[in-house]
Design a protein around this nucleic acid. Structure first.
Length: 407
DNA sequence: GTCAATTCACATGAAAGAGACCACGGTCTAGTG
DNA sequence: CTAGACCGTGGTCTCTTTCATGTGAATTGACGA
């Protein structure tokens, strides 16, 4: 690359350069807007639920439902934050996102994270779980406080470690002498309460708040407001916002997606060096988002999982018809040792295939072929840019070569 | 032709092992006064 | 006497294996029409 070209590229990003963004952070999840549009009803509902805390009363445990990008987290945090301001000495809001890797897998980790938000220190491992529980408990009860614990994406952790932890948390109040603890659970899976103990369910869900999806018009309002803050004046073509809103509305009224669309569209424009965001840029953003998501997922997979994925892709390319679990394992069994990998059992490979499916990297369907057994039929993405990039990642990991050595 | 039993090729579940990481408390060791 | 090194024990976590059980329709084979 010539040095003058590099200068041009850097120049476009220089602080004094004219950027189409005023403040890109406004379009990310981190940003907390001062007003929340089209959620008045939910804010009122939540407000009524948490208000008793101001007088020092324990509030009802509450469940908040709604699909992704409907403003659940934003609204709950906003209301809780305002509440905290009313009586900062006694009201304490703890927010934990159960989807974070360091929280989501075990009871120990959740407790450790809760303890940390209370200001305690807990090692990543090495302590008995009930010891951590005791530390947490003691911190809770150290002084008089009304604690509101927000568990975001609570369905994640319940699916993984069961509802015992909820039971413990709900029972904690009986043992606390100074403090009160209330729970607000946020979930985007309405059905997940079906799997928890009915007693726990009823005491956890004393109040419910439902967040309906945004419609296209509402999304458009939200986008307009944010875009005004995020973009420089007059860089968005007419119709860009409407298009992004319409696309996101199709996907269950997901505001996060809508914001991502205009952000990525803006990035595309910025990179191309032009000054206006037009409708085709939104189409481009749709594709980019999709590709990025998948390739990022693939990149983070462990080697064995990639080896299985490589086997699937290779088989798909070299044979007609459906690829089945047995085929994949046979191929994997032949190739894995030559790639310096320890050979896994079919049981494990079956799970890995399943995981790849859950991540949306492949599609599988369990089918019974009668006399010829029961298996998974595996589909890969059709040949497209995403697949190309996946293959590239596999090649980088020495798990795939374009030449068919093992056909 | 009909119908129940059989069969295949895995799926799915449960439990437990291996090996890494870590905290804690006790013991040993070397340095200090 | 004391701080720090070292070690054994006991805990969690992730990935994996082992063993056991489940599954659903094509096929098979017995049976009766």
């Amino acid at each position: 690359m010539g040095q003058s070209t590099l200068k041009d590229i850097f120049g476009a990003y220089r602080v004094d350069a004219k950027s189409i963004f005023k403040n890109k952070d406004v379009l990310t999840e981190k940003f907390l807007p001062t007003t929340i549009l089209h959620r008045d009803e939910q804010i009122r509902q939540l407000g009524r639920i948490v208000a008793p805390a101001i007088r020092g009363e324990k509030i009802s445990n509450t469940f908040v439902f709604g699909t992704v990008g409907t403003g659940k987290t934003l609204t709950v945090r906003y209301v809780a934050g305002e509440l905290e301001k009313e009586n900062p000495a006694e009201i304490r809001v703890l927010y934990v996102n159960c989807k974070m890797k360091r929280v989501s897998d075990t009871e120990y980790r959740l407790l450790a994270e809760l303890t940390r938000t209370l200001g305690g220190t807990v090692p990543a491992t090495g302590l008995p779980t009930d010891h951590v529980y005791r530390i947490f408990f003691e911190l809770l009860d150290k002084k008089k406080q009304n604690i509101i614990l927000i568990l975001d994406e609570i369905d994640n952790i319940i699916k993984k470690i069961g509802d015992d932890i909820l039971y413990s948390l709900l029972r904690v109040n009986q043992e606390l002498t100074h403090s009160k603890l209330s729970l607000i659970g946020i979930s985007n899976d309405i059905t997940f309460t079906d799997n928890i103990d009915t007693r726990i369910k009823s005491s956890l869900s004393e109040e419910d708040v439902i967040f309906p999806p945004y419609n296209a018009a509402q999304l458009q309002d939200i986008l307009l407001e944010r875009a005004a803050l995020a973009f420089a004046d007059d860089v968005l073509d007419k119709g860009v916002i409407a298009k992004a809103a319409a696309l996101a509305a199709q996907e269950h009224g997901d505001a996060r997606k809508a914001l991502d669309l205009i952000r990525v569209a803006g990035e595309v424009v910025e990179r191309s060096g032009s000054q206006r965001v037009t409708i085709p840029h939104i189409d481009c953003a749709v594709e980019r988002l999709d590709t990025d998501r998948t390739t990022e997922l693939v990149r983070n997979q462990p080697k064995q999982s990639l080896a299985v994925l490589a086997s699937i892709i290779k088989l798909k390319e070299s044979q007609e018809g459906n690829v089945q679990t047995g085929d994949v394992y046979a191929y994997y069994e032949r190739t894995a040792p030559t790639r310096g990998l320890k050979l896994l059992t079919p049981r494990r490979v079956s799970d890995l295939i399943n995981e790849l499916d859950m991540l949306g990297i492949i599609r599988t369907k369990v089918v019974s072929k009668g006399r010829y057994g029961r298996t998974r039929e595996i589909e890969v993405l059709p040949a497209n840019p995403v697949l190309m990039r996946i293959k590239k990642i596999l090649e980088e990991n020495y798990l795939f070569d374009t030449l068919n050595r093992y056909g």
